[in-house]
Design a binder for these strands. Structure first.
Length: 580
DNA sequence: GTAGGGTTAG
């Protein structure tokens, strides 16, 4: 017991991080000799003090031979507070099956975990257990229930539980308020807000973000202006609102005006710039941050990956992996990194990431698997892609699209079409990207009628085909020799066709030796891309095979005179990179 | 209890 006293003394008298850690270490070493009360105190103080001491919480909990109700409940609360919701629930389940009765901390923490991962069944079960234990009159538990039902969108039950609370505190009121806000019921939210006996900054913030989310920035600003005190979240809610309305400049002016910007402010702005393709502005903000946390890295890596700057995405990812960066990548980071690998066709790096996931203890989820499906499909390993596809928990639009595209670019048209039909049967609505994939597949197998019908069906899904879709169909019709139809299709386009459309037309003309239409296509290509020489040589070839040698020669000479030299193997991306 | 990050094309 001397040790226990020493430990207790250390905890009380020494406040430095190191002393706390020594204390924790002593407790760890003599865990089974110590009184439960001391262990509780240690757990409590270690969890709160610093990340380093918090590390000992896990160690202590792991090493306890017979965890009591307190230690187990404490674990659940700790995990739930640190974002490890599934882990928290699994401990809760173990506790339950081992016959230990949870306390109110365990119940409310487990409910919080269910709310966050939207686990309806879990929350309903815990509600039942709480009722059995007689916890449903405890404000903490009741408030956790309101939060849970609000988060899963069941506002009727949330309201019922809320109305039963005696002695509602501001957190209870804020929970129901957040529920109405989340589901866009601003009228109910406003009436709750007006009814609240006391409002704190969180109540005001909820209302501001509520109006911001439904894009009513006038109301949002009015509340923002009137609120008695503001914190960073208030400003961030306004910034998010303006971004949602597409008013980036205005968002930026709030960002610039706010007194204490935090990482959330930066990440919000960076993501907005990313969405609108302003990578340089994003990078500028990113560079301003001295302390970079995981989410900030993720936002910037995602920004590069989403804007075709895969090399920079991977550079930053590498930088993040260095020990002095002091962060560990998570699922989000890896998903962007894999996307970058895929864009570069770098399957080696991608495979390395898969191994590295094991080292980090990161499991595959559907998002990550979708990135890998895309990666393996792009690198030609379509079987591995399909294997991953089969392993998905739930096949969503993006996963189907990635797989269909994969089949499309690998020439497996039949499989792509089957998958597309399966997707439609599952009532998943295709988007523009899906149609790019499926049309590519039809093109590949040469199913002209079916492909054309598929293209025409886009409008039924409320989709306006893009220039790329037109280009694929022009290619499809053109290759089949239906040049007139292809030409008619171009004429009906509601937007100006890009060079890819006319290029497909020109190519089709060269396959079928149609000089007349080739000249039309060629003329349009030259207007759209005057610096490209490829179109001239294509037309020259068409002239030549039609026996019009003079025209062919004239065109080739014109190319030389203009100094348009065809560089073999050059592409737009390479030109772009060499300019940077 | 309020504000932030991922996957499919070009």
């Amino acid at each position: 017991m001397q040790l226990a006293r020493l430990a207790s003394l250390l905890d009380k008298s020494l406040t430095t991080d190191q002393a706390k850690q020594i204390h924790c270490q002593i407790v760890v070493n003599r865990l089974n000799d110590l009184e439960p009360l001391l262990i509780r105190q240690t757990l409590n103080s270690a969890a709160r003090y610093s990340p380093r001491t918090a590390h000992y919480v896990k160690v202590i909990l792991r090493r306890m031979q017979k965890p009591d109700v307190f230690a187990t409940s404490f674990t659940i609360r700790y995990l739930s507070q640190h974002g490890q919701f599934r882990e928290a629930l699994s401990v809760y389940e173990q506790m339950h099956s081992s016959g230990l009765f949870p306390n109110t901390f365990a119940v409310s923490s487990a409910l919080k975990a269910c709310a966050r991962i939207v686990c309806k069944i879990g929350g309903l079960m815990i509600h039942g257990q709480a009722q059995k234990c007689g916890f449903c009159k405890v404000v903490f538990v009741q408030t956790a229930l309101v939060d849970f039902y609000s988060k899963i969108g069941d506002m009727v039950i949330a309201r019922k539980v809320f109305d039963e609370i005696r002695g509602k505190n501001v957190v209870s009121w804020n929970s129901i308020l957040a529920g109405y806000v989340k589901y866009g019921d601003l009228a109910m939210a406003q009436s709750v807000f007006d009814e609240m006996p006391t409002k704190d900054v969180i109540s005001w913030n909820s209302m501001v973000s509520g109006y911001a989310r439904v894009k009513d920035m006038e109301q949002a600003y009015e509340l923002f202006r009137r609120m008695p005190q503001r914190n960073a979240a208030s400003w961030n809610a306004m910034i998010t609102g303006y971004i949602e309305c597409g008013k980036i400049e205005l968002a930026r002016s709030f960002f610039d005006a706010m007194p204490d910007r935090n990482n959330v402010s930066y990440i919000t702005m960076i993501s907005a710039y990313s969405k609108y393709g302003s990578v340089e502005s994003a990078k500028e903000l990113y560079d301003q941050m001295a302390e970079k946390d995981l989410l900030l890295y993720n936002a910037m890596i995602a920004c590069f990956a989403q804007n075709n700057r895969a090399k920079e995405a991977l550079q930053l990812f590498d930088e993040m992996l260095k020990p002095n960066a002091n962060v560990q990548p998570d699922k989000m980071t890896l998903a962007s990194a894999i996307s970058a690998c895929s864009q570069l066709g770098d399957s080696k790096y991608g495979t390395w990431i898969e191994t590295y996931m094991g080292e980090l203890g990161i499991g595959m989820d559907d998002h990550l698997a979708t990135s890998f499906i895309d990666l393996y499909a792009k690198c030609g390993n379509i079987d591995k892609a399909h294997e991953l596809f089969k392993s998905l928990q739930k096949r969503d639009l993006v996963a189907y699209t990635a797989m269909i595209l994969g089949y499309g670019i690998n020439g497996r048209g039949k499989e792509a079409i089957e998958l597309f039909e399966e997707m439609m049967d599952a009532d998943i609505i295709p988007n523009l990207v899906t149609f790019t994939g499926i049309l590519t597949a039809y093109n590949h197998v040469g199913l002209v009628e079916e492909g054309y019908r598929c293209f025409m069906s886009m409008q039924r899904h409320g989709l306006l085909p893009s220039q790329d879709h037109y280009a694929i169909v022009v290619d499809l019709l053109g290759r089949a020799g239906r040049l007139e139809e292809a030409h008619e299709l171009i004429k009906t386009m509601p937007m100006q066709p890009h060079a890819g459309v006319w290029g497909a037309m020109l190519l089709a003309c060269s396959l079928h030796n149609n000089v007349e239409l080739a000249e039309v296509a060629w003329k349009n290509c030259c207007e759209l891309e005057p610096d490209s020489s490829g179109y001239h040589s294509l037309l020259a070839n068409i002239y030549a095979s039609a026996g019009r040698w003079d025209d062919a020669k004239r065109l080739r000479r014109a190319v030389e005179e203009k100094g348009l030299v065809k560089i073999p193997g050059s592409s737009w991306t390479e030109c772009f990179e060499s300019q940077q």
